[in-house]
């Protein structure tokens, strides 16, 4: 593990090791994708959420390589450590935001990520009757896929979203089990 504080590591990687593209380009591309999914699934938001999670999972499987290569971060010693790395380095280097880690369960296996400034959510106003839609559900899939590649099987889900009028945007991440070495297959 690096001796530098994680926040500084995250900032340095973002500044020096990341090729960048316009955030609006990504937000609009993602938005078009979500809108397309809503049309394809005829506003069955449960299926849209599922599809976003699957796509996120596939992205996570590949993103982790990028993460490990660019951040130089080694194995985490605890799940608590993992959470800090996810927020201060992972989110920082890919999205240039640092979600807050909080709400730990007593057994140390569940935490929440609070995203104060979601780059994917710019300009978004959800359509009427879309209370079931977790617009940024792709994050849950990415977390799931990336962590699986580092031998952690997790369950990640949205608890609340400011786009839905809630007070905060919160993702709950729960460690299910530590995996033995196996290469997961991409989800169709």
């Amino acid at each position: 593990m690096t001796s530098k504080p994680l926040k500084a590591v995250g900032e340095e990687v973002w500044k020096t090791k990341i090729d960048k593209v316009n955030a609006e380009l990504v937000a609009l591309t993602y938005g078009s994708l979500v809108a397309q999914l809503c049309r394809d699934f005829e506003n069955n938001y449960d299926r849209v959420n599922e599809q976003l999670d699957k796509m996120g999972y596939n992205i996570g499987l590949r993103l982790i390589e990028d993460f490990l290569a660019r951040s130089g971060i080694g194995r985490c010693s605890s799940f608590k450590d993992t959470a800090e790395v996810i927020s201060k380095v992972g989110f920082k280097m890919f999205l240039n935001v640092v979600p807050r880690v909080s709400n730990w369960s007593a057994d140390g296996k569940t935490f929440s990520l609070y995203i104060d400034d979601n780059p994917l959510a710019d300009f978004v106003e959800l359509p009427p009757q879309s209370e079931n839609l977790w617009y940024s559900n792709i994050y849950c899939g990415v977390l799931r896929g990336a962590l699986e590649m580092t031998q952690m099987q997790v369950h990640a889900e949205f608890v609340s979203d400011v786009l839905q009028g809630h007070a905060a945007t919160e993702i709950k991440v729960q460690l299910l089990q530590i995996l033995k070495d196996e290469i997961p297959a991409a989800e169709e």
Partner: peptide, 10 residues
């Protein structure tokens, strides 16, 4: 937000 995100993610 006329900022950036990572190319890999995009």
């Amino acid at each position: 937000r006329s900022g950036d995100v990572s190319l890999s993610l995009f």
